[in-house]
């Protein structure tokens, strides 16, 4: 009886240990889904994450003169960023493989320095991985002084491998308040408005 109970206890402890490890692994798996999701997005173009390549590489690609792709530009400012932001051109027609440069315009509407981060997105999603940029204001955080307005360049190339059925590519940028400066910004803005009240 006791021996049997002893064996049973050991068996139970084994189960607890194994399942406990399994549960912890699954907890880790939840976090592993984050990079896995990025890989998945890269493969499928989900959520329109665009690519970045070097200029030389872009210039070396062959231009497909027989095909024209319309590229539309959109600009959105997130509600927490007091900026004006818009594309200088609404749309261009480009040959795949051709390096093209366009400008966006952004202006800081506040009387303090504000940093923003632009996040790109492409529709339709399947075009995203064929849309490569060599230069973009979205690569780094952009800082604008009080009331400063600035043209922001974007140089891109559409990969000739773009599926035949895609004829229009829409590129959207959403400007967010740059994340790690949020706290200081909030304080300075509050201070600003406090000063003007007092």
């Amino acid at each position: 009886m006791t021996m049997e109970a002893d064996q049973r206890r050991q068996a139970n402890q084994r189960v607890v240990k194994r399942l406990g490890i399994a549960a912890m692994l699954m907890f880790g798996f939840g976090f592993a889904l984050v990079p896995l999701y990025d890989v998945f997005c890269d493969i499928t173009g989900l959520n329109g994450k665009t690519g970045r390549i070097e200029l030389e590489q872009a210039l070396s690609s062959t231009v497909d003169k027989d095909r024209l792709v319309t590229v539309e530009f959109l600009g959105t400012v997130h509600s927490d960023l007091p900026w004006e932001f818009k594309p200088m051109v609404r749309r261009v027609k480009v040959h795949p493989g051709e390096v093209t440069e366009v400008n966006y315009y952004a202006r800081n509407l506040t009387d303090g320095q504000v940093a923003g981060q632009a996040i790109p997105s492409v529709a339709p999603g399947q075009a995203a991985k064929y849309f490569n940029k060599t230069e973009c204001f979205c690569f780094t955080r952009q800082t604008l002084a009080a009331g400063e307005g600035k043209e922001m360049p974007l140089r891109f190339v559409v990969d000739p491998g773009l599926p035949e059925e895609v004829r229009t590519v829409s590129l959207s940028y959403t400007f967010f308040q740059a994340k790690d400066e949020v706290t200081t910004e909030t304080i300075s803005m509050e201070k600003g408005s406090l000063d003007s009240i007092l």
Binding site: L19, A22, M24, M26, F27, F29, G30, L33
Partner: peptide, 14 residues
């Protein structure tokens, strides 16, 4: 439960 409750714990932790 053992497979998915930890994932829920993960997502709320995030």
């Amino acid at each position: 439960l053992i497979a998915v409750m930890p994932v829920l714990a993960g997502v709320v932790t995030m």
